[in-house]
Write a protein that binds this DNA or RNA. Structure first.
Lengths: 127, 127
DNA sequence: TATTGAAGTAGTAATGATTACTACTTAGAG
DNA sequence: CTCTAAGTAGTAATCATTACTACTTCAATA
């Protein structure tokens, strides 16, 4: 991979984010330092960073994909109220994987996104 | 809901499918009996059938949504080799739900799609 | 049974996320 | 320095889906 200032800034932004950021959010953020950067450049570089294992792409069931700086494949939960994304521990991930494998005879190869309500939002409603 | 011939034929096609069919596939199939049906009509009716709980919509992580005639909310596995979709038993579904709830303090509210390799495709490769 | 209006339809345009294309630019090996 | 493969900006295209518009039809009621 040839060095590019654009890619460097894109990676910086993904790192600086809490770990979960969309292509458009990266674009808006990088524009602050490189005002004329192209959205295509952001997508191309995010995807090549994924290919080279610098970051991970998460396919959200609804809405746009998000990019994750946390190393290692892991699944997520996505709160449909506050829109926050949380990481599953690798232990929990393995436990679910094993359950599906033994019960369904099916090998999960990609991280999953569980959609629902996080504890903060549930407490808000009940409180 | 006012009766419509188009909606009736659309529901027939979803029923007749093995349970998992995309909007475009429904469109192609219904065109055989209603050649000038509009794709918009297919989408609108599929969505209103979902709203009235005749069928279920499954948000696929990648690619187009699919519609499911099987009653009752349930999660799925999706084989990325043969593209087949399998239903999770409600027991397995509840087990996973409980796991995520106790470990993450997160309530799953939507069915999930696990992506990976089904036993048929795995056997093919290993055999 | 004729009237009527809300719900439905076909066809087309628009949207949102993403990728592809094109002519220009730049990193960095030789 | 030179040269070329890789990268870039900007724009057009794609794919899945929804919105819009003028026309049609179901079905309640006069």
């Amino acid at each position: 991979m040839k060095y590019s200032y654009q890619r460097e800034e894109i990676l910086k932004v993904v790192k600086a984010s809490s770990g979960h950021i969309s292509a458009l959010e990266v674009y808006d953020e990088v524009k602050k330092t490189i005002p004329n950067i192209s959205l295509g450049t952001v997508y191309r570089n995010l995807n090549s960073l994924v290919e080279h294992n610098y970051i991970t792409k998460i396919n959200m069931p609804s809405g746009s994909d998000i990019f994750d700086y946390t190393l290692g494949k892991h699944s997520h939960t996505h709160c449909i109220k506050c829109n926050e994304i949380f990481d599953l521990s690798s232990e929990l991930n393995e436990e679910i994987k094993a359950l599906v494998e033994t019960n369904m005879n099916f090998v999960i190869t990609k991280p999953v996104v569980f959609e629902g309500i996080c504890h903060k939002c549930r407490d808000k409603k009940e409180g």
